[in-house]
Amino acid sequence: MKKIINDPNEAVQDMLEGLVMAYPQKLQRLAETTVVMRKNVPVTGKVGLISGGGSGHEPAHAGYVGKGMLDAAVAGEVFTSPTPDQVLEAIKAVDSGNGVFLVIKNYTGDVMNFEMAAELAEAEGIQVEKVIVNDDVAVEDSSFTTGRRGIAGTVFVHKIAGAKAEEGAELSEVKRVAEKVVANVRSMGMALTPCIVPASGKPSFQLDENEMEIGIGIHGEPGIERKRIGTAMEIAHELTEKILKDREFSGDVAVMINGLGATPEMELYILNKNVQKILSEKGIHVYKTYVGEYMTSLEMAGCSLTLLQLDEELKSLLDAAADTIAFRQ
């Protein structure tokens, strides 16, 4: 394992410390927790917005804490949900009396831990609502399954629900736009290499030198198909088609080309060229594009494509100002 770390068991704590040391004017930790918050929480009159999950997806989620997006991010151990007590502390810290909204990626652990925290907070008289993001079309979705995973599309939920909350909208309105994003966002990922969880020291799965895996999850959960590595154009086709088969997109969409960690920006831009070409051939208009590392999986090589169907409301919320470490516009 080649990593710039000290004690693997302290990696998350060390990271959080190094993060707030880097941006002390913007971020603070909630003492004795793994919560990273804006400097001025609770923001008077504003619904508090919280996300979080296992670590290893940086800049998610602490990178999205700031004006126009999250009020706090709760970090678990690498690829492990934070526990309810941590989430509860975050809820209490960001509630200004207008209630708190939780953005949860659809993993059993995350859902259960955040839901428990919500129950504990409600027991303390705090109004809590939530949305469960499940944008990954690689997984079958039905009430008899675990359901789809939440991946990079989550960042659009942060952005848009965050913009709504920043406007001073009430909790039910924040929930409404968050659910609207979830209904309109789809993603599909692929990997070229595995990643290594610091505490385990071993790759989470194996891929041959000329193999790629389509539909893989951001913790290395198996995908749809393992096959010979294709060109950027073939990969663009595969990801786009899987998404478009799941849902129709038309008119204006937002595109996110997300790097999983080790893939150079050069490759993400090459993929973007091919994706944009395919979309334009299909008459889908790209309103806005985001290329970069938004939801990573440690040092995994690979990427994901996310499409978000826009309407006028989503466009204006997507365009609203945001001032966070990892997302600023």
């Binding site: 678990g76 151990e77 492990t80 949900s81 934070p82 526990t83 309810p84 007590d85 941590q86 059993t108 652990g109 259960m112 831990n113 839901e115 428990m116």
Partner: peptide, 18 residues
């Protein structure tokens, strides 16, 4: 319950905790 909930983590923490 409270210890399991805050220390186990993952899926099994809230399950055994609950």
């Amino acid at each position: 319950a409270m210890t399991l909930v805050s220390k186990v983590g993952g899926a099994s923490g809230p399950l055994f905790g609950t």
